[in-house]
């Protein structure tokens, strides 16, 4: 175990990515993600990193694709509007099976919107965002420690499944400072057998994303779908707290789940049997977490107008027992506000 350091979320992720052997960062400044490109830029000489401030997020995402295609670790970080621009490349990298890592530091949209914390990109991150039938693994950290831990995990999952991985952070977590134990240094993978890094000592590799007739392209798509099913079967991650005896289970993700946790504790102190499920993978959505929960109410709360709640309704047995509460625009409920909402709904 390394020493604890007191670090800001974005900087902790960037440092952790560097320690995970990610030597390439291409990015475009956008609040609240800019500390990551700044961190890479600053560390570049001493760590031997390549940092380029790209002309657009469109370019940044495609540069990452280029690095990933050589089998090396590269990443970008952006926020809402920038991720929208990158979605074309997310579709592309998914089809090309490129193991890239992208951080979306969510901020409230639509459009330019605001720059504080939000979870309004849930649909965009988990349902595609770009064109075509593709999925990306989405990890939602809830603390600076988990944010940092997800840098090596994101690369490992990306390389295991040959698929882009998104780390879904937000304006709150990005700017927060907490104690964190940074990961040990690793150098990333050896030469990848599928990479386009010059066909030295092996037959040539082609990475193609352009179809050659509907039969070929359907077969290509079915291979992608089989991969997604494999990920659904094996990578659902979540945490649950006191769900067994609970009458009401709060469902919340990201750093906002800590507000929900505080509200849950207040409820328990008042004798209300409240539990919590915190999805960690937003895609694949942890449907397994809901499998054996009979005869319970679900209270989904998000910093959006109700996005993950749709996945919860698909996962539970009785969708009429799912309630939703959300705030928009960068407003975040306090624990008391959330507790009062719980009382209003369930203490009739």
């Amino acid at each position: 175990m390394g020493e604890k350091v007191f670090m800001q979320g974005n900087e902790a992720f960037a440092e952790s990515a560097i320690r995970s052997g990610c030597k390439f960062f291409f990015g475009y400044p956008i609040t609240p993600s800019s500390e990551m490109p700044e961190y890479y830029a600053k560390k570049a000489p001493e760590e031997g990193l390549t940092f380029i401030q790209a002309e657009t997020e469109v370019a940044a995402f495609n540069m990452i694709a280029g690095v990933a295609a050589t089998g090396k670790r590269g990443m970008t970080a952006t926020s809402g509007p920038g991720f929208s621009l990158g979605c074309e490349a997310m579709s592309y990298m998914s089809a090309a099976s490129l193991p890239s890592v992208v951080v979306d530091v969510m901020r409230p949209g639509p459009a330019d919107g605001e720059i504080l914390g939000s979870q309004g990109d849930y649909f965009q991150l988990t349902k595609g965002g770009g064109h075509g039938d593709y999925r990306t693994i989405v990890l939602a950290p809830y603390s600076v420690q988990e944010y940092a831990d997800f840098a090596p995990l994101a690369f490992e999952l990306a390389e295991k499944y040959l698929n882009p991985v998104v780390v879904a952070s937000d304006g709150t977590l990005a700017k927060m400072m907490e104690n964190v134990v940074l990961p040990e240094r690793t150098s990333g993978p050896e030469r990848q057998p599928w990479a386009v890094d010059g066909a030295k000592g092996r037959p040539h590799n082609d990475i193609t994303t352009c179809g050659d007739g509907p039969e070929q392209w359907e077969a290509f798509n079915l291979r992608l779908q089989a991969k997604y099913q494999n990920i659904r079967d094996n990578e659902q991650r979540w945490e649950e707290y006191q769900t067994e005896d609970a009458d009401v289970i709060i469902v919340a993700f990201g750093v906002y789940s800590r507000v929900a946790m505080a509200a849950m504790k207040m409820a328990r102190e008042k004798g209300l049997k409240v539990g919590l499920i915190r999805p960690i993978t937003l895609w694949p959505f942890p449907v397994k977490a809901f499998e054996n929960l009979e005869n319970k109410d679900f209270f989904v709360t998000e910093l959006n107008s109700g996005q993950m709640v749709e996945d919860v309704k698909l996962a539970v047995k009785d969708k009429d027992r799912v309630e939703f509460y959300g705030r928009l625009g960068g407003m975040i409920p306090t624990p008391v506000e959330l507790f009062n909402k719980l009382c209003e709904l369930y203490m009739k």
Binding site: F24, F26, T50, I52, A54, V58, A59, A60, N62, M63, I64, A65, G66, V67, A68, A69, T70, K72, G74, E88, A89, Y92, A96, A195, V196, D197, G198, A199, P203, H204, N205, D206, I207, T208, T209, C210, D212
Partner: peptide, 29 residues
Amino acid sequence: YADKYFKVDSICALHGRAPAVATGVKRAT
């Protein structure tokens, strides 16, 4: 489809994005 014509490594880029992909490939190798 020229990737099929050459026995060298290749990657197909999205419309217009080849220089960005090439930037990543060249910087990495």
